[in-house]
């Protein structure tokens, strides 16, 4: 009896591991920046290139930093959701235009709508490296003290907004 049970048991264990593996996304690398201060930056606006925005300007409010680019196909998928979220007034969204051309980026916003309170540009991706960006779009939830509370890798979805991001924002907005 045992000689049949042991292989069966081993098979079940292996199958369980593989089954869990199927549901994991190898592209989802947990960010070490969660619960750490958001890297500081000072970047030019997209619309008015001679104006600067610094990350510390946003201290005292909960905000989203959405990393996007006009060459990024998945950004187009999440964009209508961002526009909706911005219209709802729940949270200000700041756009980090990552490694993009200014003119195409502006065209893109004109075409698909502009959900961003301010768009800033990171033409050579240096601020992107500081934020650990490796796959656009990425979205960071940053709290009133300037600490990263959540990072969404890949496009935001209705599900991730409803179940994770918006509840987290509401929770963070209650904090002093």
């Amino acid at each position: 009896m045992m000689r049949y049970l042991i292989p069966l048991f081993a098979f079940i264990v292996l199958a369980a591991f593989l089954l869990v593996g199927l549901t994991l996304n190898p592209r989802q690398v947990p960010s070490p920046l969660i619960d750490k201060p958001a890297p500081i930056f000072q970047l030019n606006h997209l619309h008015e290139p001679d104006r600067l925005m610094a990350s510390k300007d946003n201290l005292g409010k909960v905000w989203l930093l959405n990393v996007w680019a006009s060459w990024c196909v998945a950004c187009r998928d999440e964009h209508p959701l961002l526009v909706q979220l911005a219209n709802s007034g729940i949270v200000p969204i700041y756009g980090l235009n990552y490694k993009d051309e200014r003119t195409t980026a502006l065209q893109w916003l004109k075409r698909y709508g502009d959900p961003y309170t301010i768009s800033i540009v990171d033409p050579d991706g240096r601020v992107g490296i500081d934020y650990g960006v490796y796959g656009v779009p990425e979205t960071y939830v940053i709290d009133k003290k300037g600490i990263i509370r959540h990072k969404q890798i890949g496009p935001v979805t209705v599900d991730s907004l409803q179940n994770t991001i918006i509840p987290l924002i509401i929770e963070l907005q209650k904090q002093a």
């Binding site: 690398v29 947990p30 960010s31 070490p32 920046l33 490296i129 500081d130 934020y131 650990g132 490796y134």
Partner: peptide, 8 residues
Amino acid sequence: LVDRYGDF
């Protein structure tokens, strides 16, 4: 790099 991207 580890600070930004983790041990991965």
